[in-house]
Design a protein around this nucleic acid. Sequence first.
RNA 1: GCGGUCAUAGCUCAGUUGGUUAGAGCACAAGAUUGUGAAUCUUGGGGUCGCGGGUUCGAGUCCCGUUGGCCGCCCCA
Length: 436
Amino acid sequence: MATFQTLPGFREFYPEDLARRNHIFRLWRQSAQVFGFAEYDAPILEPLELYKAKSGEEIEAQLFSFVDKGGREVALRPEMTPTICRLVGARANALKRPIKWFSIAEFYRYERMQKGRGRSFNQFNADIFGEPGPEAEIELIALLIQCLCSFGLTEQDFYIRLSDRNLWFYYLEALGLDEARIHGVLGVVDRHEKYGDEAFKAYTEKFGALDAALQGKILAFLQIKSLAGLERTLATIGGDKLGPRLADWRKLLGGLEAMGLARYVEVDLGVVRGLAYYTGFVFEAFDRKGALRALAGGGRYDDLVQKLGGPALPAVGFAIGDMTFALLLEQRGLLPAIGSAPDIYCVIGGERERMAAFADIHLLRTAGYRVEYPLKDSAFGKQFKAAAESQAKLALIYGTDELAKGVVKIRDLTDRTEHEVPSAQLVTVVRDFFST
RNA sequence: GCGGUCAUAGCUCAGUUGGUUAGAGCACAAGAUUGUGAAUCUUGGGGUCGCGGGUUCGAGUCCCGUUGGCCGCCCCA
């Protein structure tokens, strides 16, 4: 029957699907506004260069890209970060600090689809620009937690793993590794959770085998799960960068603790995140059961605004994807059936009665009530059934008798009581009903 | 990009060793029912059996290809 089908990985939103999506967007938006973030939006289509400049050519494989009629190489946006960096960079000197912005938008990646991942998806993005210290991380991680908790999720359902690319860098530097080798080790760390010690293979092929003692230290570092553990390990190392960095950690975790959010956050240096532009703290949210892919991810990217042609401007941000998030809510039974019930359903006897009803329907709708009525004449019994099914609170009955008496019969569909009201007082009576 | 698996009505599924005009439940619509509620009964609309080719007297069923879904890998986060 359907000759045309949706492109692979793309979704269609029938009314009940869109109601669910709107519910999610509404709570995300509410959380961001409570935190004082301002909403922005930007083009879906961007110059291909914007993404090449950021992550190198290999990301092209994942882009929906093409040449437009003007010969420009363009791409559907695969993420928001480069775009917002351009927006903020262009007006950085005029914007009041701190710059706290958020968006809810659709993104496109040409990837193999899997559970929780499609070729088009929505993300909530929140970013803070202009704040180099961990105060920005506190604010963002708090927002992330609020975005998840506003749906009824708790620390039983999800947690945030907090890590730090700087700390890794300083630590490995203090252990005597050069920059290329440090990046190699970070690659190992990224894969270690999944592959175990197999993950060292790639490093060994490139740089030769790691010294056994060194490898032991790296693995031990990976196991650290607390600030106290970090402090213990690093106290023996020294180095002039590690001390201040630990102070940042204390400030960040102390701030979250003071907000009452410490129970959501775990130190976990196994997170390094692949995206090339992260420079400091990085964090990811996961469901506790570990059944789903990451719910959200983010981190600091202090160099990106400048790399994209703006001024030097520190930045932190995170994104929540809608697909995995919706799966989690569904699994926890936290997606309420979102009704779209009318306030009032009109039961109409015939054509003359219909005209009388139309006048009231218009008045009531103007007054802000959602009013439904059958488009075609049908039996009263059927109309009452329809009224009940619609889950309206009130039925207004327009029959021959009522019309003759100049009244409307109001039926409370909840307790099945009814009474007559003079037409002229209808709006007032309805208003009284709904205001109590 | 690789591998596994699946595809019959809007949804969930049945369909015999290959055999007449492909069925059921749910949903939708009409009627019983033009003055009162989630019920019941009756009836109806809805299918290129994902698509294309092959084998056969005959294919929803067997074979090949293809498209799409799901799962895993790769990749990515």
